[in-house]
Amino acid sequence: MQKSLQIDPNKCTGCLQCEMACSWENYRSFTIAKSRIKVFSFHHEGRFVPYTCTQCDEAWCMTACPVDAIQLDPVTGAKIVLDPTCVGCKVCTIACPFGTINYVAQTGKVQKCDLCDGAPACAKACPTAAITYVDSDWTGFEKMRQWAGKTDTNPATV
């Protein structure tokens, strides 16, 4: 079963545990600036929104890469940057429609979410289940269930 990160902004509190977990996974540091998932605060709307790569099936970043440094992980479906191959040309950052692959000046390479080999650290660290890792075919399942619960087709129970 292929799985995907599912993000529910309504549950996010902006604590940045996910950003620290991501940085920890990849840098052994809690430096949120290096996280591949970012929580955006829309202060005047009172909303926090975690955002990261959704692992497009036809990945623009992968198609655009001139040196084939972005490869498909056949198990998780993640598009993974191969650091030794990446030349830091940043063409992928132009090609990506969502801005979720980014250049890191410190390493001279690009970085993006790689789903942590199938055990995403951000989802594990999230205290409110705003980020979960679920069956890719059913990312809408919970939302569907909630709306399903609002229907009432049996007048006898009203």
């Binding site: 309504n10 509190t13 902006g14 604590c15 940045l16 545990q17 709307e45 009172g46 926090f48 409110t128």
Partner: peptide, 19 residues
């Protein structure tokens, strides 16, 4: 109340965000 909000690293999130 619009939502609750957290400070850095806080898994309690007691903050009040109001409109």
């Amino acid at each position: 109340l619009v939502t609750n909000g957290a400070c850095f690293g806080c898994t309690i999130a007691c903050g009040r965000i109001s409109r």
